[in-house]
């Protein structure tokens, strides 16, 4: 990969991250000052304690698991806008598949960045427009009793089904093990969320693929 392009992406990415962090921290500060209140540290600490206990270690795991998949530019962008597993990663995967580029190549890096940037812009615009202009209409669409509700409840399996078809066709040998192991885990502990399942799935899949690669089953 061209190190100059990647190095510059790191440089710009870091600048954007620091700017975002500062603005991000300014939000509650500005809200507090606008409302003329000073929230008690004790209350923030109480609320934060359980959240941090779960989400801080998860954040470390997420950065280590997703950044190799998102690429450099995609990671800097994707982690700012969030919704990584349910949106940014599948969009990047789909784009790289369609463009027929390898994730670890520079072509993969730029296609992943383009798809995540476009997805971030479209998501941000859709949320803003829907919230400002269509809130009453949306209530009808997303209401649990509306005809559209079952479709939106199943957006994730619909999204991953398409990706799964594409990957299964090419890599069915390494796909069976992680799907079987995770399904088995869920049969015993059905409430486990994707935050826990993804790292397990990635480790199982990598271990299985490594053995198959060594034995010459996959090339």
């Amino acid at each position: 990969m061209n190190s100059e392009y990647i190095n510059k992406t790191h440089k710009y990415g870091k600048i954007w991250m620091v700017v975002t962090l500062l603005i991000f921290l300014a939000i509650p500060l500005l809200i507090s000052s606008h409302l003329g209140v000073t929230p008690k540290l004790e209350m923030i600490g109480k609320g934060l304690a359980t959240v941090a206990l779960v989400f801080y270690p998860t954040a470390v795991l997420e950065v280590l698991t997703y950044s190799p998949l998102l690429g450099t530019g995609g990671t800097y962008l994707g982690f700012v806008t969030g919704n990584i597993t349910n949106l940014k990663l599948p969009v990047a995967l789909s784009a790289m598949e369609s463009a027929k580029v390898k994730p670890n190549s520079e072509e993969g890096e730029v296609i992943s960045t383009i798809s995540i940037a476009v997805s971030s812009i479209v998501t941000t615009v859709i949320i803003a427009v829907c919230v400002l202009a269509f809130l009453p209409v949306l209530h009808n669409i997303t209401d649990p009793n509306s005809a559209f509700a079952p479709a939106f409840q199943q957006v994730t399996p619909a999204l991953f089904g398409a990706l799964c078809a594409s990957y299964l066709a090419k890599h069915w040998k390494i796909s069976i093990l992680p799907i079987a192991v995770l399904t088995l885990i869920l049969i015993f502990k059905g409430t486990l969320g994707t935050g826990v399942l993804i790292p397990i799935g990635v480790v199982v899949s990598l271990a299985g693929a490594h053995i198959m690669f060594k034995k010459g089953i996959v090339k």
């Binding site: 990706l163 885990i185 990598l206």
Partner: peptide, 23 residues
Amino acid sequence: SVMSAAAFIGLIAAFVARAIAGK
């Protein structure tokens, strides 16, 4: 190349498994 495909499959497997057996 196999490793990156395996990592993606691990991620996809989590969502497929949840659609099949998630509570």
